[in-house]
Amino acid sequence: MAAHAASWQRSVQQVAIWGAAALLLLWTVFPFVWILLTSLKNPGDIISVPPKFLFEPTFDNYSALVIGEQGGQYSSTRPDFPRFFLNSMIISVGAVALSVLTGIPAAYALARFSFPLKDGFAFVLMSFRFVPFIAFVIPLYLLYQRVGLYNTHVGLILAYQLITLPFTIWMLRSFFMEIPAEIQEAAKIDGCSWFGVLSRVILPLSMPGIAVTLILGFMFCWNAFNYPLMLAGRQTFPVTVGAIQFISYEQVLWGQMAAATIVAALPQLVLSLMVQKYIVRGLTMGAVK
């Protein structure tokens, strides 16, 4: 009797766990599924009440992102989404590359060298992640207007360092600290300088950590909204700001906005799937010794 009660209790617990997992999955995935469905609807189906889950799909919204509309149900002027997509690629790749090139030496110094106020300096770097963006964007806007960096890719790449550089330094610092100091000492005995130790020993051993730092930094840059909203113009808008250009005083192009959202999410999704093994290794690096 007791064994039967215990078995029944375990069954109830398993059902509750699976039910909670299903609800969490539904809560997480449903917004993406809804946007996908919206991107495949015509304007009449999008605004129908009650919402339509069964409809004849169309790819007109996706084609409109590239070739535009030839009059009719949409406005004759349209956002230049291909330009926005290219801007996001240029800015995100440039910002991540710059943050990694400058962050690796800084992270190595914070991980291996001893100097006055090292911990305070590391905390100041991390504090840039806590400060509201408005504290930086207004001075940057005034400065960029004076020096000619407003509405430029270079200006946005430099501004994005406030997003990626502190994160890169702290992530790589933790990965470098997980590498045993004995390996570094052995390399020094063999005649390596600190740069040789970094390039020949530390970096090869830290590749999973560097990979996950690159991927997460790219995602942060790709999803950035506030800085490009204030520091970019129509020629340099990324996809995050470009997507809201489908809202005008005349109408809201819900279908094209949804299609732009799906297309904008694809690079991150494809990149994550391609290097997921590095993400797992990087996030768990040093957890088990």
Rank of each mutant, 00 (worst) to 15 (best):
A265R: 07
L142W: 03
I138S: 07
F84E: 03
L142R: 09
L172Y: 04
A259H: 10
W194V: 11
P180G: 12
I17T: 13
W254R: 05
L253P: 00
I189M: 11
Y160W: 00
G71I: 06
T38F: 00
N42E: 10
K118L: 12
H4C: 04
A187L: 08
L26C: 13
A107V: 00
L40Q: 06
R200K: 08
N226Q: 13
T284D: 03
M230S: 10
Q73K: 08
M257I: 08
L117G: 15
A186F: 04
F130N: 10
V280L: 07
L140T: 10
S7I: 03
A22D: 01
P166M: 05
T168D: 12
A260N: 06
G72V: 07
A159C: 13
T102D: 09
F53T: 14
W194K: 10
Q73P: 12
M207R: 02
P105I: 06
I247E: 12
R78V: 10
I17M: 13
V147N: 05
E250P: 01
I210L: 15
F195I: 11
M219L: 13
K188G: 06
Q161D: 14
R10D: 05
A21R: 10
R129D: 07
P204I: 13
D60Q: 13
P79T: 07
F136N: 01
V239W: 02
P50L: 13
P166G: 13
I104F: 03
I262P: 04
A287E: 07
V137Q: 07
V15A: 09
L37R: 12
W194F: 14
G148S: 12
S39Q: 02
R146C: 04
L143V: 12
L37I: 14
A107K: 01
P116E: 04
G155E: 03
P43Q: 06
A2C: 03
M230L: 11
G242M: 07
Y108T: 12
Q245I: 00
M274C: 15
L110F: 11
Q9R: 15
V12T: 05
N61E: 05
V270N: 00
L65M: 02
Q9M: 12
V29I: 14
E250I: 10
Q276F: 15
I17R: 14
K118R: 15
V15L: 06
I104D: 01
D119R: 07
P204W: 08
A260D: 09
P105C: 11
P208R: 07
L143M: 15
R78M: 11
A111V: 09
D45C: 09
I247H: 09
A6R: 11
V29L: 11
L203Y: 03
G71T: 09
S193M: 03
F32A: 15
Q73S: 10
A243L: 06
I189Y: 06
F30K: 01
Y160H: 01
L26Y: 09
D60H: 08
S248R: 06
L214P: 00
Q251C: 04
E69M: 02
V239M: 09
P204K: 10
T58R: 03
A20E: 06
W254C: 05
N87K: 09
Q145H: 03
I202W: 02
F176D: 01
G217T: 14
I46E: 01
V96E: 06
R281V: 02
V197C: 13
G148C: 12
M274L: 15
A187M: 08
V252I: 14
Q268F: 07
R129C: 09
M177V: 12
F133I: 15
A211V: 02
A287V: 11
T38R: 03
